[in-house]
Design a protein around this nucleic acid. Structure first.
Lengths: 256, 256
DNA sequence: AGCGAAAAATGTGCATGCACTTTGCGTGCC
DNA sequence: GGCACGCAAAGTGCATGCACATTTTTCGCT
């Protein structure tokens, strides 16, 4: 009996795959809030039966990204303005916890990793809005994942995705420059190590993201879900169609 | 025809029912951490097919109460000491948010409701440990539900349940008296209205709950799951107005 | 007896089928 | 032309069946 003949990845994490794909499609606004997610269309697109698609929808609903209505087609969640505000309030506290735990404790490698990610954000700055929003979100998730605390990681990821969703709902063009700058400041403060400083930096950063975003309603659109999902259907870790690569953070482990 | 024959709710929320039952069984320690949860046994006990039982397990796994292992029987989650500590840290921040939002804003009815709950805790003080732990947990959930913020309610519920689970894992006899007292103090401070006061009260309350609990490992037991579930199989009534679903999941992974 | 290996038993992974619900559309009546 | 009714299409809710993985038992071989 050899050890470890099971190749740890792929194979059969079908529902996880679907969750990841949908999550990404949602936060990149390929699927907008309110978009319908019929079980069979999903199943067909991902090459699985409705059973699996259904299970995946259940998971995403538990994460708050999808809304399940009995006997009705599931839809992408449409958070209210108030919910968005609440989500940001919670997020602020959680991320303060993250940086409190991280301040002055990051290794050189980790700091480099963070810088690399921000560089990626920078490159994507002139690309699609959706991409830069996603990258900004993933910066925070990367940060959280450095705490090594599974619970914290999960909560921050989830709330960050939800905030990302509302960002795409309420925000206009999205001024990424400020955010990117603030990310750099954050890294610097984390490296130099004073917890209080970083916490308040993070607090203000998220506060301003929230207030930049939560000002006015906007845009409705609508396309066909089967087409939208095409690029997501069999992409293990790919990038977006119209843009160069977006490295860093391939680690967002999630569903399973 | 008028489409309004909707009879309140109930009807067919089978997976919700199973989740509630299992959640309760878990936090009352009827099912201990590590206990096996085979799909067919669950299905048989609750009179549904494996499909439904499986879906319910998926939800509970998303909440962190159940651990799913591929091709293996699901088990009740067994949080590590460190995870318990992390959970409490997060919980403290979340509940500070709760009382901050509630301080000075509670109606007479709500205050009465809280007092009633604490009275119930008091009555249960000499009963089973598991019951008083559950009631103490539900006090916090009741509080959270008064914020009217679905997101906050869900997160607090979930983390409180997880803490409750670890409490039953690590805690000895459980000194409920202090907790009950602290609950009363909390209500008083909430009524009189200073946010800062209540927040620090809550902070210390949870801190001391955590430190009372997280001291030493303890007890293993083991019985038959079918027997354990018997009293839970047909319980229509749930006491809290909360209907928590939950968030995503993330598979923990040691960095390297 | 003891050590494994193979086979039975248990249990999960998933697709499929059918019943029931909702929705959309066409038809007839005003 | 407009509105309501009702039927067909689309979709969900759920059980069941079969393939495969894991665990346990049995049985052969030394």
């Amino acid at each position: 009996m050899a050890r470890e003949e099971n190749r740890g990845r792929v194979a059969t994490d079908r529902v996880g795959t679907i969750c990841r794909a949908l999550r990404r499609a949602i936060i990149e606004q390929a699927l907008e809030p309110g978009a319908k997610l019929p079980e069979d269309a999903l199943g067909e697109r991902f090459g699985v039966s409705r059973t699996i698609a259904r299970h995946a929808l259940g998971q995403l609903a538990a994460e708050g990204l999808v809304e399940l209505r009995r006997n009705r087609i599931a839809i992408v969640a449409t958070p209210s303005w108030q919910e968005a505000r609440d989500a940001f309030d919670i997020r602020i506290e959680l991320e303060r916890l993250v940086v409190r735990q991280l301040a002055g404790r990051l290794t050189k490698v980790q700091i480099a990793q963070l810088h690399a990610h921000v560089d990626a954000e920078d490159e994507a700055r002139n690309g699609l809005d959706a991409i830069s929003i996603r990258l900004a979100t993933e910066f925070h998730i990367l940060l959280a994942s450095m705490t090594q605390s599974p619970i914290l990681i999960r909560y921050v990821s989830e709330i960050a995705y939800r905030c990302c969703l509302t960002l795409s709902l309420f925000s206009r063009p999205h001024s990424s420059e400020c955010a990117i700058n603030e990310h750099r400041l954050l890294i610097g403060a984390l490296a130099s190590g004073d917890a209080e400083t970083v916490m308040s930096l993070m607090h203000h950063h998220l506060d301003s993201v929230a207030s930049r975003a939560l000002v006015a309603q906007s845009k409705p659109r609508g396309r066909d879900i089967m087409d939208i999902l095409a690029p997501y259907a069999d992409v293990p870790r790919a990038l977006s169609p119209t843009k160069p690569k977006t490295p860093a953070l391939s680690r967002q482990k999630a569903a399973e």
